[in-house]
Simulated assay, not measured.
Amino acid sequence: MSFVETEEQKALRAAVASLASKYNYRDYVLPLSRKNEPLTELWDEAGKLGFLGVNLPEEYGGGGAGMYELALVQEELAAQGAGLLLMVVSPAICGTIITKYGTEAQKQNWLTKLADGSSKMVFAITEPDAGSNSHQITTTARRDGGDWILNGRKIFISGVDQAEAILVVSRTEDHKTGKLKPALFIVPVDAPGLVKNVQEMDVIEPDNQFTLFFDDVRLPADALVGSEDAAIAQLFAGLNPERIMGAAMAVGLGRYAIDRAVEYAKERTVWKTAIGAHQGISHPLAQVKIELELAKLMMQKAATLYDSGDEFGAAEAANMAKYAAAEASIKALDQSIQTHGGSGLTREVGLAAMLQAARIARIAPVSREMILNFVSQHSLGLPRSY
C-alpha cells in the first residue's frame, strides 16, 4: 500500500469536499436531522456526480474503483458533517454482495440503480434475539413450488422508508440449527406480508430505524442472491465493507470536530491571547488529531487489503479501524465541545447533537466489545470466550 494517493484519488477528494461544502452540517444537515428528514438533495447530487457508485463495476454504471475510493467519498462528506449512512448499506454492503454473488439479471437491474443513487437498497441482518450472534438468526425461508416464503423479524434496520428493496439475511428451513448458512433475499419494501414500524430513537439523525416483520412474504425464485446453501463468506463479503465505511464516517466526523475546535480556538480571545495558544487547549486537540490520523491509516489499510482480495487480513484491519475510528471521533467531538466551553452545548453550534450520532459508532454496525472478542481470538490467538 502506498501512503501517497494517486492524482485520481486526490481529485476525487477535492471534488467530494467541494460538494460537501454546499451541504454543510450547520446549514443543511443539522436542520434536516432535527426534523428527522433524509439528506435527499445531497444524495441525489452525489449520485449524479458518480460518487455513490465509485466501487461498483463500470459495466453497470459504476466507477470501477474499490472500497478505498468509496471510503474516501464517505470520509470527505463526513468531514463537512454530511456523511451518508445509506452509503454504508446501499453501494457498500448490498452493491458488493450483488456484484460478487448476484445473477446477471440482478446486476443489470440493481447495480445500475445503486451506482447512480436512483434507487437504494438497505440491509437487514439484526434480530432481537440474535444480537451480534448471526448464527442465532431465526428468520427463515421455505420453498413453496417455485417461490420462497419468508418469515421472521428484524430490528434496527436503517432507511427502509427511503429504499426500494431490502437485502434480507435469513436461513433456509433445512438449516434452522447449527452454523449459519445465510440465504440472502431481495425483498421489495411494498411486498405483501411485510410490516414496517419506525423505532423511536432518542438521537438526532436524518435516517429512521425500523422494526420489520415478515409474515409469509412470498418471493419469486429470482429474489435469492447467491446460493441457498451459502458459506458464511457470502455474508462477510458485505460486512467487511460495512466496517470500513463505518470507520470512514467516524474519521470524517472527527475531522469536522477538530476543525471546528481549531477555528474557535484561533478566534476566541481571553486576556488578549487566543485560547489556542494555551497548552490546556492545544495539547488535547493535538492528541486527538494524532489518534484520528492513526485510525485513518488503519481504515485505509483495511480498504487496501479488501481491494487486493485479502478477505481475512481485511477483516482484522476493518474491525480494528472501526474500533479506533469510533473511539477517536467521540474523543474529538468531546474535546471540541470542551474547547468551545458553554457555546459547545448550544443548539446553534450543534456539536452536542453530533456527539449523539458519533456515539452510535461504539455500538453499530458491531459493538466495541465484539471487536475486542475478535481481536482476542483471531489476532492474539486467545481462547474463545463466547
Score class of each variant (00 low, 15 high):
K10N: 07
T103M: 05
Y264N: 10
L351P: 08
G342Q: 10
T103C: 03
A274I: 10
I258V: 09
R171H: 03
G238D: 10
N208D: 13
L85W: 12
T112P: 11
P182E: 03
E37A: 15
I125N: 04
Q80F: 13
F312K: 14
F156P: 06
G276Y: 03
F3H: 09
S379D: 12
P241E: 08
M121K: 03
S367K: 10
A361N: 09
K100P: 04
M370W: 15
A250Q: 06
N240V: 15
K48E: 04
L56E: 02
L294F: 14
A326T: 08
E69A: 04
S18Q: 13
M299Y: 06
E173F: 04
Y23V: 01
L72Q: 11
E173G: 12
K113D: 01
L372R: 15
I337Y: 09
P284I: 02
D44H: 14
R171Q: 00
A221Y: 08
H175E: 09
I125F: 07
V122Q: 00
I137F: 06
V160I: 00
W110C: 01
A324W: 13
R143N: 06
V195Y: 12
P38Y: 01
I232A: 09
V195D: 13
H378Q: 15
D116F: 09
V225E: 01
F236G: 14
K176M: 11
V168K: 05
G83K: 05
L86W: 08
V366L: 14
K22S: 09
D216A: 05
L351R: 00
P220V: 04
L285V: 03
V29N: 00
S308H: 10
H340C: 01
F213Q: 13
A15W: 02
F236M: 13
T177M: 09
A261I: 03
E8Y: 07
Q80D: 11
G226A: 03
E75S: 10
Q80S: 14
S170A: 02
A191D: 02
D174Q: 09
I244Q: 07
L52V: 11
E7T: 07
W110L: 05
G280Q: 06
K48Y: 02
K272L: 15
M249R: 11
L114W: 05
S336R: 02
S379A: 10
L345H: 12
A324K: 13
L345R: 15
M245D: 05
R347W: 14
L292F: 00
V198T: 12
L351A: 07
S33E: 13
E75T: 10
H278Q: 10
G238K: 03
I363R: 14
A233I: 12
G193L: 05
Q199Y: 14
G178L: 00
T99L: 08
L32A: 00
R26D: 09
S33F: 07
L52N: 10
L351Y: 04
V203F: 13
T346L: 05
V89R: 12
P91L: 02
R368T: 14
H340Q: 08
A314D: 14
D161G: 00
E263G: 01
K154R: 08
H175S: 07
Q9S: 08
I125Y: 06
E37S: 14
W43V: 06
K35A: 11
L253R: 13
L294H: 12
G381L: 03
Q108V: 10
V288H: 04
K272C: 15
A325L: 04
G252E: 02
L212S: 00
P284S: 09
R243I: 12
